[in-house]
């Protein structure tokens, strides 16, 4: 085993441990406080109010937080890598805009009331995927992958989608407008167990697939040309990674709404802490994103308890402030950069 491999194992175990600690901590916090000592007896008892709260409310949220936080932050790391641009995040390419537009359309037409709540994630996913297909077709047109062109197309589609959504909001009732706004601000409150499981499995599969491209991402740090002469099929790697990141984002957005910042800030924080080697960065971003979202959710559901804040409010504020603090404290950090 070489140095990097040992470091990777240690790093992964340490981050995983941190994730488990955060998850356990978040299970104990809430309106009904359950001490860590009581956690396992309650889970074993299989009955009672506390058992219900843990298994039906808090645990699903923790799992969804890991899946969504992990997916978003992994996508961010991947997209920043293929675009070689530190400002790119999962939503830059219009995926969130497309999803939000899809959802807004369903809400305005009242379909979520007549057909069922399941319509919202379905609409979000359709909107997200439609955007991805549009950006890919326009961006990959004629066999080219002009990365900057693709980025601009994504940003423009994002603007068009947001404006269309605002148009829908301006012509609809106040009640529906509220529905749209709340969906956009995001929430980990998802009643469907199957969806939560599927999201978790897909995010883990995404993590594994991303590792097959870790060396491509590492080589792409030196630019497409250099990556090619190092034996990487840059164009196909970029396409596959783009689609992977888009799918992960689309699924996250359709389940949990537009939870901002995790995809931008977490990859940067991990980069500052451990450098830009993607073998570390992919795992670090996934687990770090999970930790970040679990903690944000704890704050969102406790800070004005018994009411709940949209989690997007917390991720934006906490994430932004945390990032500024780290950036100014570690101004002279050696490892910062794509």
């Amino acid at each position: 085993m070489t140095k990097n491999y040992i470091n990777w194992l240690l790093f992964t175990l340490a981050t995983l441990l941190l994730l488990v600690i955060t998850a356990v901590f978040s299970l104990t916090v809430g309106e009904a406080s359950i001490s860590i000592g009581d956690l396992f007896p309650v889970l074993h008892s299989g009955e009672g109010m506390e058992y219900f709260i843990l298994t039906q409310i808090r645990l699903p949220r923790v799992i969804l937080a890991i899946a969504v936080g992990g997916s978003l932050s992994l996508s961010g790391a991947i997209l920043q890598g293929i675009f070689r641009n530190p400002l790119v995040e999962p939503y830059t390419l219009g995926i969130s805009g497309g999803a939000a537009f899809g959802v807004a359309l369903i809400i305005v037409m009242g379909l979520h009331l007549s057909i069922g709540m399941f319509m919202l994630p379905a609409a979000g996913f359709t909107g997200a995927i439609a955007t991805v297909i549009l950006v890919s077709v326009l961006g990959f047109l004629r066999g080219g992958t002009d990365i900057n062109k693709m980025l601009l197309i994504g940003v423009m589609i994002s603007f068009v989608a947001s404006s269309s959504m605002m148009f829908l909001m301006s012509i609809t009732t106040t009640e529906y407008m509220h529905g749209i706004i709340f969906w956009i601000m995001g929430s980990l409150d998802e009643p469907n167990r199957g969806l939560i499981q599927a999201t978790l499995y897909i995010s883990l599969a995404g993590l594994m697939i991303s590792y097959l491209f870790a060396r491509s991402l590492n080589a792409l740090r030196l630019g497409e040309s250099k990556a090619s002469t190092l034996g990487i099929n840059s164009k196909s790697a970029i396409r596959i990674l783009f689609i992977l990141a888009s799918l992960l984002t689309g699924i996250s957005v359709s389940i949990a709404g537009v939870i901002g910042f995790a995809g931008l800030v977490i990859p940067h924080l991990i980069r500052i802490l451990i450098g830009s080697d993607y073998r570390f960065l992919l795992m670090g971003s996934f687990l770090g994103g999970g930790i970040f979202l679990i903690l944000s959710d704890v704050i969102a559901r406790t800070i004005i308890s018994p009411n709940e804040l949209p989690i997007g409010v917390i991720t934006g504020m906490a994430g932004g402030i945390l990032f500024i603090i780290v950036l100014t404290q570690l101004r002279k950090t050696r490892k910062y950069g794509i």
Binding site: R221, L222, G223, S225, K226, S228, T229, L230, G231, I232, N233, G275, S276, D277, R334, K335, Y336, G337, I338
Partner: peptide
Amino acid sequence: PAMKAQRMAVVSQFPDVANV
């Protein structure tokens, strides 16, 4: 590409560097 890179290496005029 990988087979080619085993047989042929290129050093470009302005080395692309990253924070590694």
